[in-house]
């Protein structure tokens, strides 16, 4: 038996032991917990009051961190470019090629790609950093814990993109960008005409036109809800699997039993969903931008 296998068996044994101990009730059991409200984990209480709706809260903190990260890391790496790249530079160059060739150039012609690549690339990197820092526990929770007499906020997973307003603003930005680009290319009337596929005439054209206008508005909704719901559901299921359910139901054993699922889901979210959602958002923005100037689809 190899060492890795021994360690693995040991870990599974300890886990099973804890599950059994938990379910026997030695660690104590509580009735259903009415005080713990899962939706409070996603609440955004105001930290600094500013006039109007401009309060600073945790979502704003996450936005600022990810914006700074996007700018600083990329500018820093760009300034230190070398002919013989190190590992970080190679990774960023791969990312750059992905953004430029796959996302932007794959969906629009070269002249437009040159113009819109900075927008699409920034969108991708910003959402990506936003999703990734959402999986690092930061002391931003609404409730506090006491450590050696010091009141510090509890560590929490939270992402600004798990709040509908952030993806909605990004989606509206994309909507305005591609509508403006389409109007600039076709003219206001020509843009509305270009919504109707070529070769459709008469009453059918009016019907298709209404459908196309509706689908254009639905794009804002689907673009924002896709990102928002993915991040919210991801954070929620991690919360429930790694402790939340055990606390609500007051069963210690359940917490131990579900912990591996929570870990697996965490890895799935970090490894796949965070990157994939940023990629999808950028790709769809590029497709919409490219489609708005296409002659007729």
């Amino acid at each position: 038996m190899s060492t890795t296998r021994k360690i693995l068996f040991g870990a599974v044994g300890v886990w099973l032991l804890f599950v059994i101990i938990g379910f026997t009730g030695i660690l104590g059991s509580a009735p259903r917990n009415e005080e713990f409200a899962p939706d409070e984990e996603f609440a955004i209480p105001s930290w600094i009051d500013l006039p109007g709706q401009l309060d600073i809260n945790r979502a704003v903190l996450y936005l600022v961190i990810s914006a700074l990260l996007t700018c600083i890391t990329m500018v820093y790496i760009a300034n230190r470019m070398q002919a013989r790249p190190n590992r970080v530079q190679t990774a960023v160059e791969t990312l750059y090629t992905l953004m430029r060739d796959n996302i932007t150039r794959g969906n629009m012609d070269d002249k437009m790609a040159k113009k819109w690549f900075p927008f699409i690339g920034t969108l991708f990197l910003f959402i990506w950093f936003n999703n990734l820092i959402g999986f690092i526990p930061l002391p931003t929770a609404a409730h506090h814990v006491e450590v050696f007499g010091l009141e510090i906020p509890a560590f929490a997973l939270y992402a600004a993109t798990a709040n509908i307003s952030v993806p909605l603003v990004l989606a509206l930005m994309v909507f305005i960008a591609y509508t403006a680009e389409g109007i600039r290319h076709h003219g206001p009337l020509g843009y509305l005409k270009s919504l109707i596929p070529a070769g459709v005439k008469g009453g059918m054209a009016a019907f298709i036109f209404v459908l196309e206008v509706m689908s254009n508005i639905m794009r804002i909704l689907s673009l924002s809800v896709r990102l928002f719901a993915n991040m919210l559901a991801g954070h929620m299921i991690i919360l429930f699997m790694s402790g939340g359910l055990a606390i609500i139901l007051g069963m210690a054993g359940l917490g131990f039993a579900l912990l591996p699922i929570g870990l697996a889901l965490y890895l799935f979210e970090v490894g796949l969903v965070a990157t994939l959602q940023a990629f999808i958002f950028a790709t769809l923005s590029a497709i919409y931008l490219g489609g708005s100037v296409a002659e007729s689809h």
Binding site: S222, V225, R226, A229, N230, L232, A233, L276, I280
Partner: peptide, 26 residues
Amino acid sequence: SIQWLGFALTEACFFYGLVSGLIALF
């Protein structure tokens, strides 16, 4: 590359249902 696009678009349909359920709940 097309596969991941399709995967994310399909997966999102699950979240439309879930979000409308959560809206009803909360």
